[in-house]
Simulated assay, not measured.
Amino acid sequence: MDVRAELTATVWKVVAEVGAAVSAGDELVILESMKMEIPVAAPEAGTLAALNVNEGDAISEGDVLAVIETS
């Protein structure tokens, strides 16, 4: 399952690590836009298979931030 950005922003902080087990609602990354911090949470439980961003990256709406493998 792809986790996509809902807005154009900058990656402020990467919280999760590839290979980690995540539950629905766990924070993966925190975005910054217009001086607001916007957490991006896992929509489903699974394993974080890929993290496509680093802190400081500029992202656009619809970009794939992470990939979660569900069972």
Rank of each mutant, 00 (worst) to 15 (best):
V18Q: 10
V18L: 11
V18E: 15
G19I: 10
G19E: 04
G19F: 08
G19V: 09
G19N: 13
G19K: 11
A20L: 07
A21Y: 05
A21G: 12
V22C: 03
V22Y: 00
V22W: 00
S23C: 02
A24C: 10
G25E: 03
G25I: 06
G25S: 13
D26N: 06
D26S: 07
D26G: 07
D26E: 13
D26P: 09
E27G: 08
E27L: 06
L28I: 15
V29Y: 02
V29E: 00
I30V: 15
I30L: 09
I30T: 15
I30Y: 01
E32Y: 08
E32D: 14
S33P: 05
S33M: 14
M34P: 07
M36N: 14
M36K: 08
M36C: 07
E37F: 12
E37T: 05
E37P: 07
E37S: 09
I38V: 15
I38M: 02
P39C: 03
P39I: 08
V40P: 00
V40I: 14
A41T: 12
A42T: 11
A42E: 05
P43M: 07
P43L: 04
E44L: 14
E44Q: 15
E44A: 14
E44F: 10
A45F: 06
A45K: 02
G46E: 07
G46N: 02
T47F: 01
T47I: 14
T47R: 07
L48Q: 06
L48W: 02
L48G: 08
L48K: 01
L48V: 04
A49W: 04
A49Q: 09
A49H: 12
A50L: 09
A50C: 06
A50S: 13
L51M: 08
L51Q: 01
L51Y: 02
N52R: 13
N52L: 15
V53Q: 00
V53E: 01
N54C: 12
E55N: 11
E55R: 08
E55G: 08
G56P: 06
G56R: 12
D57M: 00
A58E: 13
I59E: 04
I59Q: 11
I59R: 06
I59V: 15
I59L: 11
S60N: 15
S60P: 01
S60D: 12
S60V: 13
E61G: 03
E61D: 12
E61M: 12
G62E: 00
G62Q: 03
G62H: 01
D63I: 07
D63W: 05
D63A: 13
D63F: 00
D63V: 02
D63R: 03
V64E: 10
V64L: 13
V64W: 09
V64C: 11
